[in-house]
């Protein structure tokens, strides 16, 4: 016979199970809801006469408010986003992962604690402040150091983005390295391995999934960042030929123009299409990373 109390706890168990199930499913629902919303606002432009998706992706001419000849070409914007993100990652990945290894493996006690606090503090700086730094500090600095006309360019924005994404890489990367059991370290060291051998033969392979997640979060941060790049890139629609060229990113375009575009207008819809483009970009990055991880794991 089941007593009333154990019946109650049985229902309680069921209720909690459902609650957790809803939490899990809600993540999927939100992602789809966002995607649906973006599509609802952006997709109608695809059926508009005179709109050409191929031109949208490949043309460098972005004249959304032209009275006589409206042109929506986002290639320069895509190039802007990719160049800024790419350069930022070239700087951030070695420094971020290096810092993670340093904090996790070489630091002890006070130094370690204070470093972690300071790095987390770096993550707490609002992006508008970074943009301000880019405008007032980095701009003249780049002009004088590299003798270029304009300091608001790919390099400026990439440096800011690198600084912004390093904290998240360090803390996630450090967590991943800390999750590697100490017995691996001691086992390897007891076999006469040097510290460096332990790091690159044991720790990095063992923590590769977490480290890749750290890099991806950094990439996500860099691709999605808006305010700082709006202020630091120079905001000029331009396919860059060097890191000293001014560019404009997809995100900055949305931020700068969405307020001006009247709701439902082609301009408004095109901006949402850019949102879909961004969404797809990050989706591809995640997918590729996932496949890479699986490839490594199968080996």
């Amino acid at each position: 016979m089941i007593s009333s109390r154990s019946k109650l706890s049985l229902y309680g168990e069921k209720a909690i199970e459902w609650l957790i199930r809803i939490c899990g499913v809600s993540a999927i629902i939100f992602v789809f809801a966002i995607f649906f919303f973006l599509f609802r606002e952006g997709a109608p432009i695809l059926r508009e006469p005179g709109f050409n998706l191929w031109r949208f992706l490949t043309s460098t001419e972005w004249y959304p408010t032209s009275m006589s000849n409206v042109r929506y070409g986002t290639f320069a914007l895509i190039a802007g986003t990719l160049s800024v993100t790419g350069v930022a990652m070239l700087i951030a990945v070695p420094f971020g992962l290096g810092a993670a290894v340093f904090v996790s493996e070489f630091c002890t006690g006070k130094l370690r604690e204070s470093l972690k606090v300071i790095i987390e503090l770096l993550a707490a700086i609002p992006s508008i402040v970074w943009g301000f730094i880019g405008l007032t500090v980095m701009n003249p600095l780049i002009q004088t150091v590299f003798h270029v006309q304009v300091g608001l360019n790919v390099l400026n924005a990439a440096l800011l983005l690198a600084l912004m994404s390093i904290p998240v890489m360090v803390s996630i990367g450090e967590d991943a390295l800390k999750a590697v059991p100490d017995s691996y370290r001691e086992g390897a060291l007891a076999l006469g391995a040097t510290r460096w051998q332990v790091i690159y033969r044991i720790l990095l392979p063992a923590a590769k999934n977490g480290l890749l997640a750290a890099v991806l979060l950094g990439v996500g941060r860099a691709v999605g960042e808006t305010m700082a790049v709006l202020m630091a890139t120079g905001h000029a629609v331009n396919v860059p030929h060097s890191i000293f060229d001014s560019v404009r990113t997809l995100t900055a375009t949305i931020a700068a123009e969405l307020g001006e575009a009247s709701q439902g207008s082609p301009h408004y819809r095109v901006l949402f299409l850019i949102g879909i483009l961004l969404f797809t970009l990050t989706f591809i990055v995640n997918l590729v990373a996932d496949l890479v991880v699986r490839g490594i794991n199968r080996k």
Partner: peptide
């Protein structure tokens, strides 16, 4: 040889 087996993740 440690008392608890520690296979390295290799």
């Amino acid at each position: 040889v440690a008392p608890l087996p520690v296979g390295l993740p290799l």
